[in-house]
Amino acid sequence: MLVFLLFFILQLAKINIVAGSLTGSVAFSYIRFLDPFAYLESLLASRDLVAHALWSVMLVVMLYLILGRAFCGWLCPMDYAFGLMNSIRSSFKSRFKNNVEGTVPETHKKGIYQWLSYKKTGYLLALLFLLTSAMLGVPFFTNYMSHLTNLYRGITAGYFALSSLPVDIDLIVYSLSALTLLIVLESLYPRLWCRGLCPVGRTYGLFNKLSLLRLTSKKDTCIHCEACDKECYMGVDVSRHTEQAAIRDTNCILCGRCIEACAQKGKTLKLTFRR
């Protein structure tokens, strides 16, 4: 993830590898990418099909038809930031000491957290964003609330402000406050955003159902230690899926933590391409 962030920061030093942000970008000033959820919003808001945008989104769709929801585990800067937050917190708080990173404390297992972390709530929220975009004629989530746009926007605007290029300072403030809101949400309800609410992740999660890369398990070698369940901060019950050949949970971000944690190293859980 840091490598990719570096690519995006290199553009500020006028090195043209990738321009833009994770919402939409141009690589080597030739290949265009566009985030599928951003495309959906912009499509509904403008209500017309642009071949230009379609090509750029098709490329991303193809990519994630191969890789599944790997975006969240490998590219998303928020995933990294939240992970960092949790590791800092768990080193300070005894309450989290025995828990692995991101595990929800007992108090949050019931009530609002559980309700909000249902996948259905996430889909409903995504639909709500799509509807708002269609009604307002504005890509609502992507433009105002998305952590992806706001982070890169904040970085670019901050750099511009420091090097006295034209910039609107209030935009930096807006982006930072949007990010701060997410950080605060994270500190109240760990990983609620990633597990349930983030509409970008929800969209990428759908690719998990079809992707070529998937997490597979072998039933006969599993010793039911449930180390994988404890390690998974996305709340996927990996061990419960061992009955099936492949884990196609939409919350699986293919980060590979469960494989590292598995007691039967490499025998039970594997990331494999479908043949």
Binding site: G20, S21, G24, Y39, S42
Partner: peptide, 12 residues
């Protein structure tokens, strides 16, 4: 307004 997603490609 409807089409632009604010990705920042043009700015960069």
């Amino acid at each position: 307004r409807a089409r632009c997603t604010g990705c920042g490609v043009c700015i960069n």
